[in-house]
Amino acid sequence: MNRQRGLALSALLIWGIVIGLVAILVIRVLPDVIEYYKIRHAVKAVAADSGGKTVSEIRQAYGKYAEVEHIKTFTPAELDVFKQDNQVVVAFSYERRIPLAGNVSLLIEFQGSASARDSGQ
């Protein structure tokens, strides 16, 4: 007698629920992760071109990148610009709270920094 192979209906339903929950989580988190990479790219570009610029000029340059990339989460006023080892460092840090269901939410802390040295100069 041949032994049956396959997946029971109950196992199929459980796997469907698990895959659905993971898909919902990815759909909710992915836009914020994409925006983080846009912010990181803009900060690296601004830091690479920061030689001899003032803090307000660096923030204005980031504002232009943010406008082009449609970055709404992080404003130029929130940038942390300082000097370290005679290099201008542009840093950022922010939190995003993503509601999942009811009173359950996911908190993600994004941060990064760049200097002209990190950008290949």
Rank of each mutant, 00 (worst) to 15 (best):
M1G: 13
M1Q: 07
M1A: 13
N2Q: 09
N2T: 09
R3V: 03
R3S: 10
Q4R: 12
L7G: 11
S10H: 06
A11N: 14
L13S: 12
L13C: 13
W15S: 13
I17E: 02
V18Q: 07
V18N: 05
V18S: 13
I19V: 14
I19H: 00
G20D: 10
G20P: 03
V22I: 12
V22R: 00
V22K: 00
A23H: 02
I24H: 10
I24T: 15
L25F: 04
L25A: 12
V26F: 13
V26I: 15
I27E: 00
R28K: 14
R28Y: 10
V29C: 03
L30I: 09
L30Y: 12
P31R: 08
P31L: 07
I34R: 12
Y36W: 11
I39V: 15
I39H: 05
K44Y: 00
A45T: 10
V46Q: 04
V46N: 08
A47T: 12
A48G: 15
D49R: 13
S50D: 08
G51R: 11
G51M: 11
G51N: 11
G52C: 07
T54I: 02
S56A: 15
S56H: 13
S56R: 14
E57S: 14
E57T: 03
I58V: 10
I58Q: 05
Q60N: 10
G63Y: 02
A66D: 07
A66F: 04
V68Y: 09
V68D: 11
E69Y: 02
E69K: 05
H70M: 09
K72P: 00
K72S: 10
K72T: 08
F74R: 08
F74K: 06
T75F: 01
T75N: 09
A77S: 15
A77P: 09
E78Q: 15
E78L: 04
E78N: 08
E78P: 08
D80R: 15
D80I: 08
D80P: 00
D85W: 05
D85E: 14
N86E: 10
N86K: 14
V89E: 02
V89A: 11
V90K: 10
V90L: 02
A91D: 02
F92T: 08
F92V: 00
Y94I: 00
Y94C: 05
Y94N: 06
E95I: 06
E95A: 07
E95W: 03
R96L: 01
R96C: 07
I98R: 03
P99D: 12
G102F: 01
G102W: 02
N103I: 08
V104Q: 09
S105D: 15
S105H: 10
S105Q: 13
S105E: 15
S105N: 15
L106N: 02
L106A: 11
I108Q: 06
I108N: 03
I108C: 05
E109Y: 00
E109D: 12
E109K: 15
F110M: 04
F110L: 04
S113N: 12
S113T: 03
S113L: 12
S115Q: 01
R117Y: 15
D118G: 06
D118L: 05
S119I: 01
S119H: 09
G120I: 04
Q121T: 14
Q121F: 13
